[in-house]
Amino acid sequence: MNVSGSGDPERERLIAAVTATEAELQRTLARGQSPLFDSGLTMQQLRVLLLLGADGPHAQSELAQALAVGLATVTGLVDRLVRRGLVARTRDPQDRRVHRAALSDEGRDLLAGIQSAGQERRRRLLGSIDIDALRGLAIGLDALRAALEADIR
C-alpha cells in the first residue's frame, strides 16, 4: 500500500489532524510536572541513560556509534553523567584501554522514576477515554508500530 504522497485528500486531512494533535500533546506534556523534566538532563544525556538502561554497559566507542556522535562528545556526556552520580565508568577487564559506562544505582533509580511516572500518567489518561475510542487508539497504535518496524528494516 502506497501511503506517502498518495494524494488521497482524506488521508492527507487525517495525517494533518494527527500531526496537529501530536504537537498539541507535546506542548501540553512539556508544561506538566515530570521527573524527566525535573531531572535537568539534556536530550543527549537522556539518550545515554536510556541506552545504558536498555542494553547494559557500553564501551564509550559503542555509545558514540549508537548516538552518531564523536568519541570526544560521548566522553563529555559520560563525564557529566558521572559527576552527577548517574553513570559509573570502568575499564574493560579484557582490554584495559577501553572505558565502559554503566548506570549507577542513582541512574537506575532516576530512569525507573521517569518510566513509572510516565506509565502511571498514561494509564490514568487512557482510563478516562471512552472504550470505543480506546479500541480505535489500540488499532491505530498497532498499525503505527507495524509501519515503524517496516520502515526501519
Rank of each mutant, 00 (worst) to 15 (best):
V18L: 14
L25Y: 03
I114M: 14
L50T: 08
R89E: 10
R31A: 05
V78G: 00
G32S: 11
S61W: 01
T42S: 15
D79G: 05
L81S: 00
G113F: 12
I15W: 14
R97T: 10
L41I: 01
A64K: 00
G70W: 08
V87M: 00
R80M: 04
L51H: 12
D142T: 07
A112D: 13
L71T: 04
I139F: 14
Q26P: 01
H58L: 06
V18M: 13
G32I: 00
D95Y: 00
E120W: 11
R27F: 03
L41K: 14
R80G: 02
L71W: 05
S39D: 13
R91K: 07
L71P: 06
E10L: 14
E10H: 07
R83G: 11
A66E: 06
G40D: 11
A102K: 02
T28K: 03
E12L: 12
T75A: 14
L125M: 09
Q60C: 06
R27G: 01
L41V: 14
Q33H: 06
G40S: 15
Q119S: 10
R11D: 14
A146R: 10
L86W: 03
R135H: 08
G53Q: 02
D109H: 12
L134E: 06
A88E: 11
V69E: 08
I15M: 11
G140R: 08
I129L: 15
R135T: 08
E12Q: 12
D79N: 13
D132I: 04
L103M: 07
G107K: 00
V48R: 01
G140H: 09
T42R: 10
R97V: 02
D8H: 13
G7D: 03
E120N: 12
R121G: 12
T42A: 12
A54Y: 15
G5R: 00
R100L: 05
D130G: 03
A138H: 07
Q44T: 10
Q119F: 11
S128N: 14
T90I: 06
E106F: 06
Q45R: 09
G107R: 00
D8K: 01
A101E: 00
A54F: 10
V69D: 10
G7P: 00
M1I: 07
A17V: 02
I131V: 13
